[in-house]
């Protein structure tokens, strides 16, 4: 790892200012992904701005919404009693991710910014358009068991590895950011992006904006929710496919629904069309099956990951079935 300068920011404003000027500077908080990437020489910042002293750790329940500070730890959110009560889907998704040690370190903002786990991205001897633009995509035609079935491009078929983000995408969250030009809000589903021709960009942050919090509007998804994570071992593994399902069921009728998938695209894959289909329908396996088939519209495999075309819809049915029977 290259040595670097490290400074500690005492306010979000100073953090943003101190980083904006320098080309190779980055924020660091939990470090669970960044330190790993630095060890692998995937990223090599000259300067790190330690933001852990910033006052961005609070979980607040405001009128009409829940605000979660960007520096709140994954475990802190997952085990917060009020979060478990109001947003159980989020708590489940967080608990499905990584290990407890990592959840103790990783922050909400950092979780959103974690990079893909694609092996070609991680191995600096391999071609990867995300790491080195225009160097090619190793995964296309290579080993792509973990890779995308939705929204990929000829440049990149990597997936976003987060569990938490799948739940946040489903729950209509928004991201609050602060940059040199001030503060702004980004819809969570617009935060991560599809690779297109510029897979080096994971998200829509500009000019090294700092994520300050995530906000979740109040909802009725407190009972019939499920986060289903399918992986190669029982714990401590990234998702092959995951499904965040939240239902608001009255008298066996689906009043409202949120559905998103993880492990299938460059971003958490929100299924709004499927949600529209399900609204007003009576709960049944047949309806869930139809929803799942609809969800697969436009999906394609790249060889090793073809099984996701079967696993994906099965997982949707499973998640909806479990959620609806709670």
């Amino acid at each position: 790892m290259k040595n670097f300068q490290i400074i500690r920011a005492l306010s979000s404003k100073s953090a943003v200012i101190s980083i904006a000027k320098e080309k190779e500077a980055m924020f660091i908080a939990g470090g669970t992904n960044l330190v790993d990437l630095m060890k692998k020489n995937v990223v090599a910042p000259d300067k790190l701005v330690d933001i852990t002293a910033l006052d961005l750790k609070k979980i607040e329940f405001l009128t009409g919404k829940t605000s979660i500070g960007a520096l709140a730890k994954n475990s802190q959110v997952a085990e917060d009693k009020a979060i478990i009560e109001k947003h159980p889907l989020l708590a489940m998704a967080l608990t499905a991710g990584a290990s407890q040690q990592i959840r103790h370190m990783a922050t909400v903002g950092g979780n959103m910014l974690q990079r893909t786990r694609c092996s070609y991205f991680y191995n600096t001897d391999m071609p990867c358009n995300k790491r080195v633009p225009k160097s090619g995509c190793g995964a296309i035609g290579g080993s792509n068991r973990m890779h995308a079935i939705f929204g990929a491009s000829d440049s990149c078929i990597a997936v976003h590895p987060s569990d938490m983000c799948v739940a946040l995408a489903a729950l209509d969250a928004t991201v609050q950011v602060e940059g040199p030009k001030g503060k702004r809000e980004i819809k969570f589903t617009d935060f991560h992006r599809l690779p297109g021709n510029t897979p080096e960009k994971d998200n829509t942050l500009q000019n090294k904006e700092l994520i300050t919090s995530v906000e979740i509007p109040n909802n009725n998804f407190t009972k019939n929710v499920h986060y289903l994570k399918v992986r190669d071992r029982s714990s401590y593994a990234f998702a092959l496919v995951s499904v965040a399902a939240a239902l608001d069921i009255q008298n066996n009728t689906i009043n409202d629904v949120r559905l998103a998938m993880g492990g299938v695209a460059h971003k958490p894959w929100r299924l709004t069309e499927v949600e529209e289909f399900l609204k007003g329908k009576t709960v049944s396996e047949t309806i869930f099956r139809q929803a799942a088939d609809l969800a697969m519209k436009g999906a394609r495999g790249y060889g090793d990951n073809d099984f996701k075309l079967t696993l994906g819809p099965n997982a949707i049915v499973e998640a909806l079935t479990i959620a609806s029977s709670k």
């Binding site: 786990r117 191995n123 391999m126 190793g138 290579g142 080993s143 190669d232 593994a237």
Partner: peptide, 25 residues
């Protein structure tokens, strides 16, 4: 151990991608 035979290199040469049983298994 998964090899990308185009390069003759392992793809999952780490403990995150080469899975061994964990306690929950």
């Amino acid at each position: 151990l998964e090899i990308d035979h185009r390069f003759g290199r392992p793809i999952n040469n780490n403990f995150a991608d080469y899975h061994v049983p964990v306690n929950a298994d």
